[in-house]
Design a protein around this nucleic acid. Structure first.
Lengths: 368, 368
DNA sequence: AAAATTAATGAAATGGTTTTCAAGCTTCTG
DNA sequence: CAGAAGCTTGAAAACCATTTCATTAATTTT
């Protein structure tokens, strides 16, 4: 008995001295079993005697054994790795989306490999290649532009994919997103209901086919139903930054001095708008109402607090991983277009036309 | 010649039919050379004839060969993978930091594996394990809490590491950060210079030993030099969110109704403060001056525009990878504590005590 | 108690690269 | 022209885990 203990110690000390990586072979040796048995214990195989398993686990602990992931991936061809390709992830909404993705991936035993494409197809391709080489199990795309090219590449690669925060009209592709059409519709409908007829819009980049174009559709639909003429000139192109909201507001005020409401397709641009208007002594909401989109935290703390469509990036992230996991497991997915809830949150930046009372915060019913 | 062409085609078509992964073996076969030669060509080895290399490259293109990364990692023990463990990465400053890390890592041929620890030691450990199993070449830590425990683990793991956005007083550990002491000092010095004596502070979580504690040191130093008594009660603990700034402001106003300035240790909390003050008809900066820290984009667009310390998260990210790369390559690093520049940006949220003019934006000299 | 099952284990093949070592070719030197 | 030296190339080992197949041990059945 003492002998065994001594040789065990020698073994371990030997390792420390050499400072090498511990492999399954070492564990097997220390536990006095074969490689196969160690592997079985590590993978919770049922066909190993309890006592043997205990021995092995003890050896694993003693040696502080860590699996060599590359070897496992090489053999099994599955990596427990999910790729995330995003663009503009520093935007608060998308940062929260990433956080949700991360949390749920972690929960399900996936690690994340992350790349920012800046919306450039070339970078997206390059990341796709790298990720493929790393044998990712699936991929989440949070990208907005050029989706046609990218899509064909992804399909060609035959990697399970989920588009997060974007709707793609292709029955093979799973998407998780807010219902941009309905949400944008809600905004315009609300503005019309409180009397606004002369509305200007700040959309996203024209290349953004996934979110901005959908919101545009919702707007057009609502305008039609409210018998307001669709005037393309009233749609200024922004890029979802504060700055672009600011400068879009400038254009709007110069070209359409009579607008009573501005709907920016995200909150940052709306904040930019408010900043410009206040700077030029245009009162929000008394002179002009402003609506944003996303419902980022910030909206509650600016003055006036921002009316917006609230959606949860974090939830969107969770759902995306959930769906992706189903695709990876080849589960049947009844409906691969998933819409997360949204709410129109009316705060202080909007007002009934020509009234000067301050709204209290009202939350409309969920329409998602 | 025709024969060769035909057999080539057959070969390729065969692959497409079977839809299997192309390996080096296939490339070798098609090119009519050995595995070793293919490997050499792929790794730009100099000792291969140009003509042979051409043949191989042609075969690679034809078959659209992609390397199997796991096999390569298994053999070489280097992954070109950098781990990033962060906490609270949805904060704009840190989101930009991640963007910088990503950009520079990409530039240098590294991919990123990313985990959010929520500042929990357990998760940090868990990610560290996973990343070690994946044989990451190095790791960037953007974490704030518990650093003592974490540090010993990291050191024990012997993985090249850089702490980004945090200073650690350990000569072995590389850090890239703004000089928090100097920057906080600058803020207080400025406030004192314009006449403020009664200042309240909103610090970060007490667990944050990397940024908040350093800023605290800078504040104390400046107070001492300005002959202002250090009163711990005037330091309210926040957690870097809008909300915590808002509620900290409430506490401050209730307990210390005579403060003339509030210095929040980040911009979001400062925005929360301003929100609270305006809501309670306390004018900023006429009644109370407010200063933030970080210089996030938003600060320019709120009303009043925020006086703050500006530092670039993106630059911080770039530098972090640069330093990490040096550590990985075991280059000698003359000084492993790197400070990125910072500026005190005076905007509209601060004022000379008892004056009511509006400041124009003034940018002080870089002190970093 | 012998035969037939079933359970537990081990040996060896496998996955796709890199790298060492040796061998085959060229080319150069004397 | 023989031998040395330098280029190119290929064969085979190594990296570390998983998994199939065969074998041995334990249990049940007759």
């Amino acid at each position: 008995m003492l002998n065994i203990f001594n040789s065990e110690m020698d073994f371990i000390i030997d390792w420390e001295r050499k400072n090498m990586d511990v492999t399954m072979k070492d564990v097997a040796k220390l536990a006095g079993v074969s490689l196969s048995t160690v592997s079985r214990v590590l993978n919770d195989s049922s066909l190993v005697r309890e006592e043997t398993a205990r021995k092995v686990k003890k050896a694993v602990d003693k040696l502080d054994y860590q699996i060599n992931d590359s070897a496992r991936i090489l053999r099994t061809n599955t990596s427990n790795l999910i790729g995330v390709i995003g663009a503009g992830m520093e935007r608060p909404f998308l940062a929260n989306l990433l956080k949700g993705i991360e949390a749920e991936a972690r929960e399900r035993g996936f690690a994340l490999i992350y790349g920012d494409s800046d919306g450039e197809l070339e970078k997206e391709q390059s990341y796709l290649n790298i990720m493929k080489q790393k044998k990712i199990d699936g991929i989440i795309l949070i990208t907005t532009n050029y989706y046609n090219d990218l899509l064909s590449i992804v399909k060609n690669y035959k990697i399970p994919v989920v588009f997060a925060s974007g709707y793609i009209n292709d029955p093979e592709i799973s998407c998780v997103t807010v219902d941009n059409v309905a949400a944008a519709y809600d905004v315009v409908e609300y503005l019309c209901q409180v009397g606004h007829q002369d509305i200007a819009f700040i959309k996203g980049p024209d290349l953004d086919l996934l979110a901005s174009q959908e919101r545009l559709r919702g707007v057009k639909l609502a305008l039609r139903l409210s018998d307001i003429e669709y005037d393309p000139k009233r749609f200024i192109e922004g890029d979802f930054t504060f700055e672009s909201g600011y400068s879009a507001a400038k254009k709007i005020i110069n070209k359409f001095p009579d607008v009573t409401a501005i709907f920016a397709f995200n909150d940052e641009m709306a904040v930019g708008v408010i900043s410009y208007l206040k700077e030029h002594n245009i009162k929000v909401p008394e002179d002009i109402s402003v609506v944003g989109f996303d419902g980022i935290e910030l909206g509650k703390y600016i003055d006036p607090a921002l009316t917006t469509i609230k959606q949860s990036g974090y939830q969107l992230g969770l759902r995306s991983i959930e769906i992706l996991n189903r695709v990876i497991n080849q589960e049947k997915i009844e409906d691969n277009k998933v819409f997360i809830p949204h709410k129109l949150v009316v705060r202080e930046s909007t007002n009934k036309l020509n009234e000067f009372t301050t709204n209290k915060e009202v939350i409309s019913n969920n329409r998602g």
